Computed example of a mutant assay.
Amino acid sequence: MFGLKGKSFLTLHDFSSEQINYLLTLAGELKNKKRMGIKGDLLTGKNVALIFEKPSTRTRCAFTVACVDEGAHPEYLGKNDIQLGHKESVADTARVLGRLFDAIEFRGFSQEVVTDLAKYSGVPVYNGLTDLYHPTQILADLLTMKEHLGELKGKKFVFIGDGRNNMGNSLLIGCTKMGVDITIIAPKSLWPEENHVKVCEGYAKLSGSKVEITESVEAVKGADVIYTDVWCSMGEEDKAKERIALLKPYQVNEALIAKVENPNMIFMHCLPAVKGYEVTEEVFESSYSVVFDEAENRMHTIKAVMVATLS
């Protein structure tokens, strides 16, 4: 359906708005089926390799449960379990795994690795997170927004914090492709790369949305979504002290929420959260926080990706 059979899921750059919308619709249907206790068989007989260079809670659990729910077998491969990129090249590992598995998930550092896995394996490859992109998270975010806001097109989405990380990059793509106005609020040194912004502005022109990159926290006014992420991504722990100093004015707290002036807004976070830094306990635990709906939706949207590309 929509040209998704056999397709890898490496970045949302590779997907049209129609394909993304189809995945969101399918995720909603699969979520309803699970809520009704209906056991699925759409992935029966499939074997999925789960490669993890980086630790994970939501991504690992979401892929595992999604596989089992629809009859597939997930095989976890930690960084010490295989020779990927060490004693064996990525290309050779990909060609071996492609003969043994029906699909491969990769969560690690390099986008080049997940791209090469897709290039050489001959099976669908899913990006569970790299330093550049986190596309499965964005699908969960979009589904959560649809559930709470009713629609996507024309909504105002504000990401505040480290704007040049994998979440900032991926949210720019997802929002602009789906007609969501996106504002990234960050100190200028942490703005997304100019070339990436220009590409996403092109998507925005097609969908009728807008892109704003600013240092001003006043830009939260009228937001339908306030979104933040950790100030130090995995592998950047040595920069924690300077990041905290730089990003302290961008903390999501009750004073910032008051500037939004939208009683129907929601707060989102991809988790894990470092409460007291990028977000306060009060906001995280508030009635408008939907972070655990968002976390659950990782599984439903990942299941949709696998069903659409494998069944």
Score class of each variant (00 low, 15 high):
residue 1 M to T: 09
residue 3 G to L: 08
residue 4 L to T: 09
residue 9 F to H: 06
residue 13 H to M: 15
residue 22 Y to K: 03
residue 22 Y to V: 03
residue 26 L to M: 10
residue 27 A to C: 03
residue 30 L to R: 05
residue 31 K to S: 07
residue 34 K to C: 09
residue 36 M to I: 10
residue 38 I to C: 07
residue 43 L to N: 05
residue 45 G to L: 13
residue 47 N to I: 14
residue 48 V to G: 01
residue 50 L to D: 02
residue 50 L to N: 06
residue 56 S to E: 04
residue 57 T to L: 10
residue 59 T to Y: 06
residue 62 A to H: 10
residue 65 V to N: 01
residue 65 V to L: 05
residue 66 A to T: 03
residue 68 V to R: 06
residue 72 A to V: 12
residue 73 H to K: 14
residue 73 H to E: 09
residue 74 P to M: 00
residue 77 L to N: 06
residue 82 I to L: 15
residue 84 L to V: 11
residue 85 G to K: 01
residue 88 E to F: 04
residue 88 E to A: 06
residue 90 V to L: 08
residue 91 A to Y: 00
residue 92 D to W: 03
residue 93 T to E: 06
residue 97 L to W: 08
residue 102 D to L: 02
residue 102 D to F: 03
residue 104 I to Y: 11
residue 104 I to T: 05
residue 108 G to F: 04
residue 111 Q to H: 15
residue 113 V to K: 08
residue 114 V to P: 07
residue 116 D to W: 01
residue 116 D to K: 14
residue 120 Y to V: 02
residue 120 Y to N: 00
residue 125 V to S: 00
residue 127 N to D: 03
residue 129 L to Y: 02
residue 130 T to G: 00
residue 130 T to V: 08
residue 132 L to F: 09
residue 133 Y to I: 09
residue 135 P to T: 02
residue 139 L to V: 00
residue 139 L to N: 01
residue 140 A to P: 03
residue 143 L to E: 12
residue 145 M to L: 11
residue 147 E to I: 14
residue 149 L to V: 00
residue 150 G to C: 00
residue 150 G to F: 00
residue 152 L to Y: 01
residue 152 L to G: 01
residue 160 I to H: 12
residue 162 D to C: 07
residue 162 D to R: 11
residue 163 G to M: 14
residue 163 G to N: 11
residue 168 G to I: 15
residue 173 I to G: 00
residue 173 I to D: 04
residue 175 C to Y: 00
residue 175 C to P: 04
residue 176 T to Q: 13
residue 179 G to R: 00
residue 180 V to I: 15
residue 180 V to K: 09
residue 183 T to P: 11
residue 184 I to R: 05
residue 185 I to A: 07
residue 186 A to E: 05
residue 187 P to E: 02
residue 187 P to K: 07
residue 188 K to D: 09
residue 190 L to V: 12
residue 191 W to G: 01
residue 194 E to V: 15
residue 198 K to C: 01
residue 202 G to V: 10
residue 204 A to T: 03
residue 208 G to N: 05
residue 208 G to H: 01
residue 212 E to M: 14
residue 214 T to Q: 13
residue 216 S to F: 15
residue 218 E to D: 15
residue 218 E to S: 15
residue 218 E to K: 15
residue 220 V to K: 06
residue 221 K to W: 08
residue 222 G to T: 13
residue 222 G to Q: 13
residue 226 I to K: 07
residue 229 D to C: 10
residue 232 C to E: 13
residue 232 C to H: 08
residue 232 C to I: 14
residue 233 S to N: 05
residue 238 D to L: 05
residue 239 K to P: 08
residue 239 K to V: 02
residue 240 A to C: 08
residue 243 R to D: 04
residue 244 I to Y: 13
residue 244 I to H: 08
residue 246 L to Q: 06
residue 248 K to Q: 15
residue 249 P to V: 05
residue 250 Y to M: 12
residue 254 E to D: 13
residue 263 P to I: 11
residue 263 P to N: 07
residue 268 M to S: 10
residue 269 H to N: 09
residue 273 A to F: 14
residue 282 E to M: 11
residue 284 F to Y: 13
residue 285 E to M: 14
residue 287 S to E: 14
residue 289 S to A: 15
residue 293 D to V: 11
residue 293 D to N: 14
residue 294 E to S: 04
residue 295 A to V: 03
residue 296 E to H: 06
residue 299 M to Q: 13
residue 303 K to L: 09
residue 303 K to G: 00
residue 305 V to C: 04
residue 306 M to K: 05
residue 307 V to P: 03
residue 307 V to W: 10
